[in-house]
Design a protein around this nucleic acid. Structure first.
Lengths: 217, 217
DNA sequence: CGTTCGGTTGAAGATAGTCAAGAAGCGTGG
DNA sequence: CCACGCTTCTTGACTATCTTCAACCGAACG
């Protein structure tokens, strides 16, 4: 990890809330290399993070080595906001990342309790929505449907015709509660049905939106 | 649903937080019959609920009829606290229930923004922890492990030697992301291994705590 | 005493996982 | 620029797990 420079950058600034404002003023800009750990499982929760550039993955390891990926965070997303005194999920940089970090107490002093609490509340909302969707997906969707949902959410995020996958197959698998082989098979299957097309393993294009939507439902 | 009487009952009162306090003062006591709906999926979020007596189940139905149970709420638990403007999960009374209900805006006026936000924050914490656990369970545990985890959490909650299941097999299955048959089979299997014992289908006793814990891990 | 409902059990089938091999991309160094 | 090794992804064959469909059992209730 490299400490870069504390900064308020107008390009990445989004001073829409007390929280965003606090990030601008008190944030420290950090650089993380690919696969570097941002915080560990069971670390104390004391900082808030916002992705400026790159993609972050949260994940949890069970004692016997099974891994569950919590979510992926892209530029603008806030993460590290977890209930309880320590992190149940670790956070790692998927690729080279630029992250704004603020100390929670610093934010509180700056923003005032009420404003901060409301801002954090809002961030937690998003987090909970993600979790709720995740639960339904893992509990009630088939492998094919999970993969379709995943591609759907990625494709929606990117306005471009082509969508890029920031993560490898293993990360997808651990997010979807599947094995890497099953993910791979489902992808080739969706491609065989001409629903999506992969010019390369990390890049795809949706061919039949309605079909993909139906699966993702 | 039957409206009972607005009340502050010292037995069920837990005036430890602004939220609890608000429930005491502004709560309306409602009675729901077994399987009665408390709020529907896609209803607007505007009320907060606290279980006084009975058990509540939240669940979500997909378009094609699959059901995912979100969680079960027992006496003292707060529910209905969801992100977004409307409920993604419905809430229903598992058995005959007594519920304290407060209007969010009323609570806010009473408690003051800051105190309320912090109290809601705390309740949301618990909710997020449940969701995180649920994700890991659905994503990375086998049927046997899921059932074991479930029994474990029920048994821990009840101080008694015997633990009672408030819900039927179907509800367990929909919570665990399994079918009713698989749940049943895992239960008989755990019983066969003398890890738990079911004198009746709704009542059990843990025989080998260490074995159950190992599975639940 | 029959009916209903919730739970269990069995047999067969589908879905996803495991193990193993092969192909394709990618960076490094000759 | 090509060759090599490494990693990631794909594919195949087989197995395990879970689901499906169906029958059965037993307690609760009229």
């Amino acid at each position: 990890m490299t400490l870069a420079y504390p900064l308020t950058d107008p390009r990445t600034a989004r001073p829409t809330s007390a929280l965003a404002d606090a990030f601008e003023r008190h944030g420290v800009r950090m650089i993380y290399a690919r696969n570097e750990e941002i915080y560990a499982q069971d670390d104390e929760v004391e900082l808030l993070y916002r992705v400026v550039k790159g993609v972050v993955r949260t994940s949890r390891l069970t004692v016997d080595g099974r891994r569950q990926v919590g979510d992926f965070y892209y530029a603008g997303d806030i993460f590290g906001l977890e209930p309880g005194p320590d992190h149940r999920f670790a956070a790692e940089a998927l690729d080279d990342c630029e992250i704004l970090v603020v100390r929670r107490s610093a934010v509180r002093a700056f923003a005032g309790d009420a404003a901060l609490d409301r801002a954090i509340l809002e961030a937690q909302r998003l987090e909970m929505e993600r979790l709720q969707e995740h639960v339904v997906m893992l509990g009630r969707k088939s492998a094919r449907e999970r993969v379709a949902s995943f591609l759907m959410s990625i494709a929606q995020r990117q306005s471009d015709e082509h969508a890029d996958l920031a993560m490898g197959r293993q990360d997808m698998a651990d997010y979807l509660g599947l094995t890497i082989e099953t993910v791979s098979r489902m992808l080739t299957q969706l491609q065989g049905d001409a629903i999506v097309e992969f010019p390369s393993s990390r890049r795809f294009q949706v061919r039949k939106w309605t079909a993909l939507e139906a699966l993702a439902a």
